[in-house]
Write a protein that binds this DNA or RNA. Structure first.
Ligand SMILES: NC(=O)c1ccc[n+]([C@@H]2O[C@H](COP(=O)([O-])OP(=O)(O)OC[C@H]3O[C@@H](n4cnc5c(N)ncnc54)[C@H](O)[C@@H]3O)[C@@H](O)[C@H]2O)c1
Ligand SMILES: NC(=O)c1ccc[n+]([C@@H]2O[C@H](COP(=O)([O-])OP(=O)(O)OC[C@H]3O[C@@H](n4cnc5c(N)ncnc54)[C@H](O)[C@@H]3O)[C@@H](O)[C@H]2O)c1
Lengths: 218, 218
DNA sequence: CTTTTTTTGTTAAAAAATTAACATTGTTAG
DNA sequence: CTAACAATGTTAATTTTTTAACAAAAAAAG
């Protein structure tokens, strides 16, 4: 019935497409910096180690249409991806655990333009509480509820020791967080309405090891 | 015709199964430490946020058979997964770029029992070269060929600044590395006989953001 | 002006991954 | 001893993801 510019339901975008859109944008931002105004599907594909068909299909799914024989408009596409991935006014993020990994992530993130911003960090170490790291203030765990509400933080990144993982996840949920990115090697449990993503470097490394070994055998 | 203990061709194990086997092992090692001798498929499933069917199917694929109504023998299963993922005498790994992230990874890894071992690291910063971090010596980039050959290193983990990514990847390949785990936000190119895995935290974070935003809308 | 080339957008097919269904069989309870 | 149960192992169905095929059309070439 209704005629719309975007008849696409974001709800049905494949998970893998979401991941790739983020990666496309990362690559597109670099192209933009280099003054490139248009890009072909096969160029994007090469950067991401995937096929051009897949790029075109993903873009079809988000309803973006390029120019025949000119390819895609870099800045338009960046904006469109932004309108899908980022929330309007941006989403605020907190890091819990300001150790090696936490610092690496904050550092990494602080250079990036994004509508996601790391607004706070939490730790139990009194030496860290009250200090600021790459512009991100570190608070005591006890102030979590207050800070998360006040700063309207929606996502928590966990980089605490594995032993603290379960309780920290619980605390984050209670504080009203809606998504958790868990870098602890300990899987945690969250209610259905909290989105959870877990990543462990050892899994990646062992996967590489497996395929390296395989290749030797064959 | 031939009857074999393991008629399973590891070559055809699904990629996702490889990842999960690594995760199962991580969980099983914890169970072993706690003195648990057997575990049910649904227990493993709960830890990994997947279904029991999937666990059983994965184990079927590697030809492991549990005890009806007792579940799986924890230590047997750990050993079997090890025989699939790890190479016989272990695979040696090097980290390139001893910054925040490099140190976080070395630290993390040094606690783990595994047949994968980080045997060397490389950097260009003279202050770091010649020192040792969590037992891992740091060498100059110029010595890479020699060290990698001498130590029989097969896998390289890249944690250098994005600007150095392409040249470092090339150097690793030339030095004879067979697998690369790239934590740089810059995708790199490798020959077909080198296995490449790339991970970017921003992709994970943006994925979480997307689903958080989605949930708000519905 | 016409033909060829090149690139997009889309539908259809194939492949990969997950989930469901169910047969099987020790174990326990009655 | 027998029936009910609770777990595994496996085949089949479903869903998701990727790849292939190809039509359409702007640009370039002739
Ligand atoms: N997923 C991966 O790829 C990966 C890689 C490296 C490390 N890790 C894991 O990340 C975690 C952090 O690693 P790291 O090297 O930064 O460790 P770290 O010890 O340097 O840092 C941990 C920080 O958490 C703080 N902390 C401790 N208990 C806390 C609590 N209850 N609440 C809040 N903060 C608390 C500590 O004060 C410290 O600052 C570890 O669990 C490690 O295993 C994961
Ligand atoms: N994938 C992720 O999730 C993730 C997270 C955080 C950071 N990162 C990325 O990881 C990389 C490292 O981050 P960091 O915070 O550790 O940075 P860092 O600046 O602390 O460390 C970089 C290290 O690499 C060394 N280096 C520079 N050029 C080199 C070269 N050509 N060869 C060898 N070593 C060289 C530097 O001396 C330094 O020790 C960056 O590219 C960053 O963007 C990725």
């Amino acid at each position: 019935m209704e005629k719309d510019d975007k008849p696409i339901s974001m709800k049905h975008l494949p998970h893998k497409t979401i991941e790739r859109l983020s990666q496309y944008r990362r690559a597109l931002l670099i192209c933009l910096d280099q003054g490139q105004t248009h890009i072909y599907s096969h160029e994007i594909a090469k950067i991401q180690h995937i096929t051009a068909v897949q790029v075109r299909r993903d873009l079809m799914l988000i309803g973006y249409t390029g120019t025949l024989r000119k390819g895609y408009n870099v800045s338009e596409l960046i904006d469109l991806i932004g309108s899908i991935i980022d929330a309007g006014e941006g989403i605020r993020v907190a890091i819990v655990g300001m150790g090696n990994l936490g610092r690496a992530l904050i550092n990494y993130f602080s250079g990036k333009r994004s509508r996601l911003s790391i607004s706070a960090s939490f730790d139990t170490n009194p030496d860290k509480i009250g200090r600021t790291m790459s512009g991100v203030p570190c608070y005591s765990l006890e102030d979590m509820n207050e800070i998360i509400a006040r700063e309207n933080i929606k996502i928590g990144i966990m980089t605490v020791p594995a032993a603290a993982a379960l309780t920290v996840a619980e605390k984050l949920v209670q504080a009203g967080i809606k998504g958790i990115l868990n870098y602890t090697p300990k899987p945690v449990y969250v209610p259905k309405d909290v989105y959870l993503e877990e990543y462990d470097m050892i899994t990646s490394l062992e996967k590489v090891a497996f395929y390296v070994k395989m290749q030797e055998v064959d």
